[in-house]
Amino acid sequence: MAQETLGVWGGNLVTVNYLFLGYTTMVAYSSKSGLIIHNLINLPSTVSGFFFTVFFTILISVGGTRITDNVNQWLTTTMIGILLAIEVSVVLYGGWTGLDGSSNWGNIPATIPVIIFSLVYHDLLPVICAYLDGDLARIRASFIIGSFVPLFTLLIWDAVTLGLSAHADLVIDPVELLTRVQWSGISVMVETFSLLAVGTSLIGTLLGFSQFCVEQLNNFAKNSTSSSAQTLKLEENFEPRVSRNGQRKLFDPKKWWRTNKLGFTATTLVVAPSLFISTTVPDAFSAATDIAGGYCMTTLYGVLPPVMAWVMHTRSSNKAIVNNIDQNNEAGSDGSVSLLSMKPAWIGVGLISGGIVIDQILEDLSKLHP
C-alpha cells in the first residue's frame, strides 16, 4: 500500500520500519519471557528466554498454522482464566481500592510507548486475512470482537495494579507490584499469566514477521511462481498424501524440505538476530518496548497511514478535476467520499502520532544529557 501511494521510497521506508519493529518486538518478548521464567523456576533468564523462543519457533515452523492456532486458543483460554482468578483474589483481599486522587498523572507520557506497544497484534492482519480465506465479514468480526479481549484485559489489569499501588512500594513493573503482595498463590498466578501473555503475543508477531520475510525473499529472488508453495501454510505440514491406487505414501522429507525451505530460512532470519540481542544486551525488554512503541509502531500505524490517505485523496480530487466529473460521483467509484468524510480523523491521528514521536525523541535526548 505504501508503494502504491508513496512510490518506491515509501515502500522501502515501510519495509525498513517494519523490519526494525519486528526485531525490537521479538527482542522484547524473548527478554521478558526469560525474566518471567527466571522468577518462576530460577533458571537463568538468558537460557530460559532462548528456549522459550525456540519452542514457539519450532511450533510454528513444524506444526503449521493450524496446530499453532489450536495451541494459541488453549493458551489464551488459560490466560483469561488465570486473569479472572487474579482479579477475584485481589478483590477478596481488599486490593481494589480504586483511584484515591494521589496518582501522579505526570508519568503518563513515559508510558505512551508501552501503551502503543500493546497494539502490536495488528501485525497479524495479513495472516488473519489468509487464514479466513479473504472473507471480509469474518475478518471484520475477528478484529472487532478480538480487539475487545485485549482491551478489557488491559483495563482490568490497570485497575488492579492501580488499586494495589497504595499497599506496595513504588515500582515500575506492574508484575513486580503484584508479586510483592504476600498472598498465597498470587505470585505464581501473576507470573504464569504474564508468561502466557508473552507467549500468545510472540506467536502473533512471529507468524506475521516470518510471513513478511518470506514475501520479501520471494520478491528479492523474483521467483513469484513458487511464492504460493513457499509461504507459511494454512494447512497441516504433515498431511498424509494418497497415491492414485488409494494407498498412503510415506512421508517424503526431501519434498517437504523443498516446500518449506524458504519458510525456515525466513524464520531463522527473524529469530536468530532477536535471540542474539536479547541474550547479550542487559535489560533489553525496556529498551525494545520504548523503541518499538515510541518510534516504529507510531510511525508505521500512526504517521504513514494518514500520509497515504492524503495522497490517495489528492489523486482522486485531481482526477475529478481533470475529467470534469462531479466530485461526489467520482468519489463514489474510488472511495474518496470515505476518505473525505474521515479527513479530520486521519489528520488528527497523523498530528498526534507525529507529536508522540517528537516527544519520545526529546525524552531520549534528555536521558543522554540529564
Rank of each mutant, 00 (worst) to 15 (best):
Q3R: 14
W9M: 06
L13E: 04
V16D: 05
F20M: 11
G22E: 01
G22I: 01
Y23P: 03
T24E: 00
K32P: 03
S33W: 05
L35P: 01
L35Q: 02
L40T: 07
I41A: 12
P44W: 09
P44Q: 12
P44Y: 08
V54M: 12
F56E: 00
F56T: 00
I58C: 12
L59A: 14
V62F: 15
G63W: 05
G63H: 08
G63V: 07
G64L: 04
T65P: 01
T68W: 08
W74G: 11
I80F: 12
L83T: 09
L83K: 07
L84Y: 11
S89Q: 11
V90G: 01
G94I: 14
G98Y: 05
L99H: 02
S103W: 13
S103K: 10
W105G: 12
G106W: 10
G106F: 07
N107I: 09
I108G: 11
A110N: 10
S118V: 07
S118H: 02
L119A: 04
L125W: 06
P126D: 04
A130H: 08
Y131E: 11
L132H: 12
A137I: 09
R138N: 12
R140I: 06
R140S: 06
I145D: 01
I145Q: 05
L154Q: 05
L155N: 11
T161E: 11
A166D: 06
L170M: 09
P174S: 07
L178N: 01
Q182F: 05
S184L: 05
S187W: 06
T192F: 15
L202C: 07
I203K: 06
I203R: 09
Q211G: 06
Q211T: 13
Q211E: 13
C213R: 00
E215Y: 13
L217Y: 10
S224Y: 14
A229P: 03
T231A: 15
T231D: 13
T231I: 15
E235S: 15
E236Y: 14
N237I: 14
N237M: 09
E239H: 12
E239W: 13
R241Y: 06
R244S: 07
N245Y: 02
G246S: 06
F251Q: 04
K254G: 01
K255H: 14
W257K: 08
N260W: 11
T267S: 12
F276E: 03
T280R: 08
A287V: 06
G294Q: 02
M297Q: 03
T298W: 02
V303W: 07
V303A: 01
P306C: 08
V311N: 01
S317D: 04
S317T: 08
K319M: 07
A320H: 06
N328V: 05
N329H: 10
N329Y: 09
A331V: 03
G332P: 04
M342L: 15
L351F: 12
G354F: 06
G354R: 08
I361Y: 04
I361T: 13
E363V: 05
S366P: 02
K367F: 07
K367N: 12
